[in-house]
Amino acid sequence: MAMIEMKDVSKWYGPVQVLKDCSAAVNKGEVVVVCGPSGSGKSTLIKTVNGLEPFQRGDVLVNGISVGDPKTNLTRLRAQIGMVFQHFELFPHMSVVDNISLGQVRVLGRSRDEATARSMKLLERVGLTQHAAKYPGQLSGGQQQRVAIARALAMDPLAMLFDEPTSALDPEMINEVLDVMTELAREGMTMMVVTHEMGFASRVAHRVIFMDQGQIVEDDKKEDFFRTPRSERAQQFLSKILHH
């Protein structure tokens, strides 16, 4: 069953069309990597899933609920989709544990104690228990991103969106974040990941979507994508990104 289904999604910024009839589906428990050159619309596409980026045509269904329908309670829908950003976007004025608890208390209505207990469990999982009382500004980029993943997981999401989760990190911190994501994928989380980490894609993804100029150019099983991408554009992209 498709957890996320995009049907002919199109989006314009004024006269510029940034998404062109994008259709794709992510099944429950599936990990889909979205890649492509910068400016190809990857981030915009992934943000249409939780309605952070509005679109003018087509529709996105999450667990059967339409994102484009004005009657949909987007706030409630967003609470069920975890999102991890390129620049972490932790709340700098809150301690690590409060960052993870905020949504649990204010959106899910959990008690503070219940939320804190859950936050501590998630911190243990991402290996940051001893940093619970610290503030985001006191952590490294990799640590911040792991907290951001914990914050998203605390909402018990149906699916997780990752928007270039490692591109703002120093190289030595990339793996600690990818490890957490890999484990998450193994546990069966439905994931949509915008990334240039082709190693991660080839190890963890089930499918790879390749975008160029606002279009989905390829949507292949991982094995096919890395062995024989059909489009010339994807071949060029792969050769550039893999040989250095």
Partner: peptide, 26 residues
């Protein structure tokens, strides 16, 4: 950063909650 607003909204906070707990304190 624009991302702060997005992070609050993506978490499922309403717009007033995003102002109250995320944007205004900073």
């Amino acid at each position: 950063a624009r991302g702060q607003r997005m992070a609050g909204i993506a978490l499922g906070l309403t717009l007033p909650q995003t102002y109250r707990f995320v944007l205004l304190p900073m």
